[in-house]
């Protein structure tokens, strides 16, 4: 699930109102030329995609052509996505400031107070702490305030057919989106989301929506756009489905033998190593967890130097929302801060 940055440019350049039926290839070509990608990956054409959808999911071909005809190619999205890659990301402590600030912490306390009942029920149903759910929603959309203003259909169509690097992924998401709008009886043109197609309070991608979204208030609809209760239940279900372990630690500070840092950092970004194995590799961990506990090694840049951490299964679950060690740590620390503040104000 992609993080919202809500940086929709005011100058949205759109190539629109061109009949897809006739000019699909032209759009495709112009899109490619405009973005001047070194195209190596194969992009499936819209026509092929439509035929596929008709064959596999029984869509009406002409309705689908008509619908995709109305999708606009957003140049601004392609611009955002083509930001120089490989650039060294900003240090952790700068990233941290975006989320660990008074506005987001206090907003989380208020959100918790307003939705205390649903959060308590989610905690009981799915075993996911309320503060984790609140923190995810806080980091993703500032508690539902910034959900993205792109039409999901525009975003997904743009990326599925004009962004070679991840075209396969976004084409699948477009497929899921079309299915979910049909299943849920939603207007595919009306739904809003981020520039990457992430939707609602919890920023679910269409595939995640179909698998993990729940109707948590029992009104018969999975409304993750405007219904906090459904959003809370859905985030909790997402965590539970990715094997959140209730009552287990998320991440703990650790020391490390200086000569062992490189070796430990070379390990996989997955909690697949026992503490025994990591200790043999030079980890100096003083926690109480049994030696057989599976963990992973994390380094984060602070203002006064690099710190090292041991991430557990629950840390990894947070990275399933956004595969970034900085993101997961920010969510965790924000959750701690909110829980601390909430406990004081309660």
């Amino acid at each position: 699930m992609n993080k919202i940055t809500n940086e929709e440019s005011k100058l949205i350049c759109s190539i629109n109102a061109v009949s897809m039926k006739r000019y699909a290839r032209t759009i495709l070509l112009s899109g490619l030329l405009l973005c001047s990608f070194g195209v190596t990956a194969e992009i499936v054409s819209i026509e092929t995609f439509i035929d596929d959808m008709v064959a596999r999911h029984n869509f009406n071909k002409f309705d689908l052509i008509d619908l995709l005809d109305q999708a606009k190619i957003k140049k601004s999205i392609l611009k955002v996505m083509s930001r120089p890659r490989g650039k060294k990301p900003s240090p952790w402590y700068k990233y941290r400031r975006i989320f660990l600030n008074a506005k987001r912490i206090n907003g989380g306390v208020k959100f918790w107070q307003r939705n205390a009942k649903a959060l308590k029920r989610a905690e009981a149903t799915y075993g996911v702490p309320a503060e984790m759910i609140v923190a995810i929603i806080g980091v993703e959309t500032l508690y539902g305030k910034i959900k993205g203003n792109f039409r999901v259909l525009d975003a997904l169509t743009t990326l599925a057919f004009n962004y070679p690097r991840r075209a396969d992924f976004f084409r699948q998401e477009l497929e899921h989106y079309l299915l979910l709008t049909r299943e849920e009886g939603l207007d595919p043109l009306a739904q809003k989301g981020s520039y990457a197609g992430a939707m609602g309070i919890g920023q679910f991608m269409p595939s995640s929506f179909r698998r993990f979204a729940v109707d948590f208030d029992g009104d018969g609809r999975r409304n993750i756009w405007t219904n906090n209760v459904d959003a809370i239940g859905s985030v909790a279900n997402y965590f539970r489905s990715h094997k959140w372990q209730p009552g287990q630690p998320v991440i703990k500070p650790t020391q490390v033998r200086p000569d062992a840092v490189e070796g430990l950092l070379a390990l996989e970004f997955k909690p697949q190593y026992t503490l025994r194995r990591l200790t043999r590799g030079g980890l100096l961990y003083h926690g109480d967890e049994p030696n057989s506990t599976k963990a992973m090694f994390i380094d984060l840049e602070t203002e006064i130097g690099t710190t090292y951490w041991v991430g557990f299964q629950n840390y990894y679950v947070i990275t399933r929302y956004n595969r970034s060690k900085r993101y997961a740590m920010a969510v965790y620390q924000l959750a701690q801060e909110i829980a601390n503040r909430y406990g004081q104000t309660r």
Binding site: P253, T254, Q255, Y285, G305, T307, W309, N340
Partner: peptide
């Protein structure tokens, strides 16, 4: 505490966290 104390065991048994209060 300095950055080298991060992850050390404290008198209470808790691990020292640089970002802890």
């Amino acid at each position: 505490y300095g950055v080298d104390d991060h992850g050390a065991k404290t008198a209470s048994g808790q691990l020292h966290d640089l970002y802890g209060m």
